[in-house]
C-alpha cells in the first residue's frame, strides 16, 4: 500500500504532474499580472503549456566542443532537484509528502541546485555570452542564497524545529510571522525573486547585455527543462514563504489565496523597478539583506534565551 501511495505522491500529487501543471499556472498568473501592470492584455491561459510543449518538440542543437553528457544532463538535474524540493513543502496546503528532521535544510539546498546547474551549463557551452551569464548567475548564488536561507531560519528558530511541517504547524497556531518578523519576510521574498532571476534581479539573463545569459546555446528540450524547473521553484518558494510567514498553510484555499497574494506582490515589484546592475545586486544583498536577516536572527535568539514566547 505504502508503495502505491509513494508512487502517487511522486507522479501525481503532490509531486510530478500536479507540481508541473501548478507551476505552469503560476507562470501564467505571473506573466498576466506583469502584462496588466504594463497596460497590456497579456498571454492566454495555456501559453506556458504551449511554450513548454513547443520547446520539447524542437530540435536540440548541441554546440560543438561541449561535453554532451553535461549539456543534456544539467537541465534534467535542475528540473529533478526542484521537483524533489516540491515533495518536502506543504504543497496545496496539504501536509508534505515526505519529511524528516532537517528537511528544511535539504529543501534549501535543492533549491540552490537550479542556479548551480545554470551556472555550469553556461560554463560548459563555452559561448562568451554564456560564460559571462554563468559567472553572473554564480555571483548571485552567493549574494541571495545566504540571505534567503537566513530569512527562512527565522521562523524555524521561533518554532524550534528544522522540520518544514512542524514550522508550518507552529505558524498556523501563532500570530502571523510577517508581523513578528517583517524583515525576514521581506528578505525571503526578495531573495526568492533573486533566485528566480526575476526583474529587477535578472542581471544573469539581462537580455540586452548578454543575449540570454547562460542558456544562450540551449534551444529545445534543455531550455524547456530549465524553464520548467524555474517555474517549479517559483511555486515551491512561494509555498514555503506563505507557510512560514503568512500563518501557515492548512488547506488548499489557504494555499491559493496566500500564494496568489505573494505573486501579486512580486509581479508588482517586477514592473516597478529597473534592472539592477550585478554589483548593485550583490552589494544590496550583502549590505541590506544579509544584515537585516542576521539582526533579526540574533534578536530571535536573544528573545528565545530570555524565554519570551513568540
Amino acid at each position: 500500500m505504502s508503495v502505491v501511495l509513494a508512487l502517487v505522491a511522486l507522479v501525481l500529487f503532490p509531486g510530478g504532474l500536479f507540481v508541473i501543471f501548478g507551476s505552469l499556472a503560476f507562470e501564467y498568473a505571473d506573466r498576466k499580472l506583469v502584462a496588466r501592470f504594463q497596460n497590456r492584455v497579456g498571454p492566454r491561459w495555456f501559453q506556458p503549456l504551449a511554450d513548454l510543449v513547443k520547446l520539447l518538440v524542437k530540435e536540440e542543437i548541441v554546440p560543438v566542443g561541449v561535453n554532451r553528457g553535461l549539456f543534456n544532463g544539467l537541465p534534467l538535474a535542475a528540473l529533478a532537484a526542484s521537483l524533489t524540493a516540491a515533495l518536502y513543502v506543504p504543497m496545496a496546503g496539504i501536509a508534505p509528502a515526505w519529511g524528516f528532521r532537517g528537511d528544511l535544510v535539504v529543501t534549501v539546498y535543492l533549491l540552490m541546485m537550479m542556479t548551480l546547474c545554470i551556472g555550469l551549463a553556461g560554463a560548459n557551452t563555452q559561448d562568451r555570452f554564456s560564460l559571462i551569464g554563468s559567472t553572473r548567475a554564480l555571483t548571485q548564488l552567493f549574494s541571495y542564497e545566504a540571505p534567503f536561507l537566513l530569512a527562512l531560519l527565522g521562523p524555524s528558530i521561533a518554532a524550534g524545529t528544522w522540520r518544514i511541517s512542524e514550522v508550518n504547524g507552529y505558524a498556523r497556531e501563532h500570530i502571523w510571522m510577517i508581523v513578528t518578523q517583517p524583515l525576514g519576510f521581506l528578505v525571503a521574498l526578495i531573495g526568492l525573486m533573486g533566485k528566480l532571476e526575476l526583474p529587477p534581479f535578472d542581471a544573469p539573463e539581462a537580455e540586452t547585455e548578454i543575449v540570454s545569459g547562460a542558456l544562450t546555446e540551449y534551444s529545445g528540450r534543455g531550455l524547456a527543462f530549465f524553464h520548467l524547473g524555474r517555474d517549479v521553484e517559483l511555486l515551491v518558494g512561494l509555498t514555503l514563504i506563505s507557510a512560514f510567514y503568512l500563518g501557515g498553510l492548512g488547506n488548499p484555499l489557504h494555499f491559493i489565496l496566500k500564494t496568489l497574494v505573494l505573486l501579486f506582490v512580486t509581479a508588482g515589484l517586477q514592473s516597478l523597478f529597473a534592472r539592477l546592475r550585478i554589483d548593485q545586486t550583490v552589494g544590496l544583498w550583502w549590505r541590506a539583506g544579509a544584515v537585516l536577516a542576521l539582526v533579526q536572527l540574533l534578536l530571535l535568539i536573544v528573545l528565545k534565551i530570555l524565554g519570551v514566547r513568540l
Binding site: 497596460n39 492584455v41 497579456g42 498571454p43 524542437k58 555570452f129 540586452t208 540551449y218 534551444s219
Partner: peptide, 21 residues
C-alpha cells in the same frame, strides 16, 4: 507595445536565434 500587444498570441521577442521559431 500595449496598443497591439503581440504577447496575446504567444509571440515573444527572443534575443538568441537558438530560442526562436
Amino acid at each position: 507595445a500595449p496598443r497591439y500587444d503581440l504577447e496575446r498570441f504567444g509571440v515573444k521577442l527572443q534575443g538568441s536565434p537558438r530560442h526562436a521559431d
